[in-house]
Every structure is written in C-alpha cells, then in structure tokens.
Amino acid sequence: MKIEINDLRFTYPTGLEALQGISLTIEAGEQVAIVGQNGAGKTTLVRHFNGLLQPSSGSVLIGEWDTKKHSVAKLASRVGYVFQNPDEQLFSKDVGTEIRFGPRNLGYSKEKIDELVTRALSLTELSDKTDTNPYDLSPTWRKMAALASVIAMDTPIVIFDEPTTGQDAVNVARIANVIAELRKEGKTVITITHDIDFCAENFDRVIALSNGKILLDGSARDVLGQEEILAQTYVDPPQLTRLGKRLGLKETVRNQDEFLKALK
C-alpha cells in the first residue's frame, strides 16, 4: 500500500514548526529507515501516518485514504505503529491478551485471530510468555511484546520507532529477523533509528531529516556515504562505511561482506 505525502507541515500548539514542507512517496513493500538528529521531526512525521497527528497543512495519503478524513481507529487497519517506549503502549494483564487486542478490534474471525497471534508470538519468540503480565517482563521482552501486538494486526504498513534502543546484540538480531520476515510478506516497514549500523544492514532506502525538512532521500548506499551532509543532522555513516572511506575504497560499503569484498 502506497504512502503519499504532499507538502506536509505541522506546528505544535507551542508554536514549534516541527515539519516544514515534507513531500515523499513510499511504495508498497519498501523498507525505509528514517534517521536524523534529536528533534529533527522523525517521530512527528511518522505519527502522521496513522492519524495520531493531523497536518497543519498539506496531506498524507495511506493508499487512497486521506488521514484527515479517517479516524485513528480506522487507519489502524492499514498502519501499525510500535512506540519508542513500550510502557506507553502495553496495558493488558497478560501477554496473550495484549497481543489479541489489536486483531480482535480489527474484527477478524476467531480462526484468523488465532493464526495471527500464534505467528506474532513465534516471530518475536514470546510463545512461552503468553501468561506473563507485560510489566513483569524484562525491558527486552516488553519491547518484543510491543512489537508482537502490532505485528498481530497484519497491517500492510508497519512503523517502528527506535526498535533497537537499549537492546543487546542478541535482541537486535531478533528484531532484524522480524523485519526480514515482514519484508518477505511484502509489508512496508518504516523504522526510525539512530543505530546507523543496524540501518545499513537492514534497509534499502534511507531518509535523513533535519529541522523538519528532508535533507537526503535515496538508496542506503547513496545516503549513508554522504558524510558531510549527514553531519548536518548529527548522523555518522556506518562504522564500515567510514572505515572504507578512510582506506580509500572506491565503492561505498555498508556491511562486512561488501567491505571484505572491496578489500580483496
């Protein structure tokens, strides 16, 4: 499902103009990372995709739906949103109930709900924790419960707001695996992240925001190679990209395989 954003502007009630004319199109099935300095407008932008925020001017289309004309509840059938902080999202007495809540509200049949919940639990490796209260889980598993509850809604578009924050290497790999599975299913995945190495290894397209505007938008290889421009929005290129540059490699490399190949 396509996302089309036309000259989107948004001003908070305090007078802060957080988005200053954003236009972009995201095609169905794209894997997009949004990067940029704190306060650049990343979260403000994605909160327009499911109607949590409404444009001050300009428009956001999810498929043929204008977000101004559809409720957040309705948009939830198209756009799933995993919050930066799982504590803002979880509320049920146990993980199983939490994960059923979304698909049940979308009115799926019982069989379909069972199937979606089982799949979400297995993707996030939570199958043995269905009876646990989400707040008795460690922060790592609470994050996975937040992911699972959104994945279970089976929306064509899934948004992750800083999924790897505070996660160890094992769990970052788990989250990368969830994203890879969603990609196989043809979902659109949009992820805000400061973890540039994670971004380089898991996303095809990167959008860099700065002060409410798009600074760069293109393939991960093109965007992540632009060290000087990225610095304007407080982003460093990935470690191996920086290393490749310093060693004078001709190609911009993004990951270990590309680096070792270029080195030979």
Binding site: G36, Q37, N38, A40, Q84, E162, T165, G166, H194, I196, A231, T233, Y234, V235, D236
Partner: peptide, 9 residues
C-alpha cells in the same frame, strides 16, 4: 540510548 550518533559522541 535515544541520542543521535554525533550527539552521543
């Protein structure tokens, strides 16, 4: 954990 890369540095 929630800071941009250069801010982190």
């Amino acid at each position: 954990s929630q800071m941009d890369p250069i801010g982190t540095r």
